[in-house]
Computed example of a mutant assay.
Amino acid sequence: MDTIELQRIALIENDNWWYRERRAILSRELLRFSVPGDAVDIGAGAGGNSRELLGHGWRATAIDLSPAAVALARAHGVEAYEGDARYLPLPPCRYDLALAMDVLEHIEDDGRAAAEITRVLRPGGTALVSVPCDMALWSAHDVSLGRVRRYTRRALVELIEGAGLLLDRVWSRGVLLRPFLHHLRHRTAHCEDLAPLHPFINETLRLSAAVERHLPTRSWPGTYLFARARRPG
């Protein structure tokens, strides 16, 4: 992702429905921990998720391949370092929590990146992963964002378990929005997600995501998959 796109994300991520929903999911997952610990945010971008960690009392380290992303994260008060997700510049067995949210789909050798998540986690440490799902939804949107794949549920499970992690749970998000986003992204030849949305549309999408939290749709086809796993300890 280039510098202009990172700057766009930094401008919209506080209000954009998707970035808010992703932070809300992270916030709920953090409630599973009795006390905050050490966390690494892999592929942190401008550092939105890292700031969420800090807000919950965690000691957060952000890693991103882009020097521009590292600079943006540091400008927002995040401890950030340049690094490749396949070769993290971090010691082994160091972190209680590793985030890889919207990251693995950008990496050809995603197995190597998943193995690095396992390596840097302490025994018993938790990994939280999110990826776009279903190649039937592939469009110019994915190309614009530099993705190399979308995942099936089985492919994500195999990736996580192949890295030596014990899977706790996999669930879908974007079930209610799937028909709308499928139509939107297949009628345009460019990516619209990095542009500010009209407030009414943004709020409608946010409310749809909020409603979905209370529906039994987590095993249904959506637009995203989330997974929680742990390193054996």
Rank of each mutant, 00 (worst) to 15 (best):
M101T: 14
E105I: 06
E105H: 15
E105D: 14
I107E: 13
D110S: 12
G111I: 07
R112Y: 07
R112W: 12
A113H: 07
A114D: 12
A114Y: 12
A114P: 11
A115M: 14
E116R: 05
E116L: 07
I117H: 10
I117C: 09
V120F: 09
L121W: 05
L121K: 05
R122T: 11
P123G: 06
G125D: 08
G125L: 06
G125S: 08
T126P: 04
T126E: 09
A127C: 07
V129G: 02
S130E: 07
S130I: 00
S130W: 04
V131Y: 03
P132D: 03
M135A: 10
A136H: 00
A136T: 03
L137D: 00
W138A: 00
S139V: 00
S139T: 01
A140K: 03
A140N: 05
A140P: 05
H141F: 01
H141I: 01
D142I: 01
D142W: 06
D142P: 00
S144D: 12
S144Q: 02
S144H: 11
S144M: 01
L145S: 02
G146S: 04
R147K: 11
R147C: 06
V148A: 04
R149V: 03
R149I: 00
R150E: 01
R153T: 07
R153D: 03
A155L: 03
A155C: 06
V157F: 00
E158V: 12
E158F: 06
L159F: 04
L159D: 02
I160N: 09
I160H: 09
I160V: 15
I160W: 05
E161C: 13
E161Y: 11
L166T: 15
L167S: 11
L167K: 08
D168R: 10
R169H: 15
S172M: 07
S172Y: 08
R173T: 06
G174Y: 00
V175R: 06
V175L: 08
L176G: 00
R178T: 00
R178F: 00
R178Q: 01
R178D: 01
R178E: 01
P179H: 08
P179K: 05
L181A: 04
H183A: 06
L184H: 12
R185T: 02
H186W: 05
T188P: 03
C191S: 15
C191Q: 10
L194W: 09
P196Y: 11
L197Q: 12
L197K: 11
L197W: 11
L197F: 15
H198P: 10
P199I: 10
F200Y: 14
F200C: 14
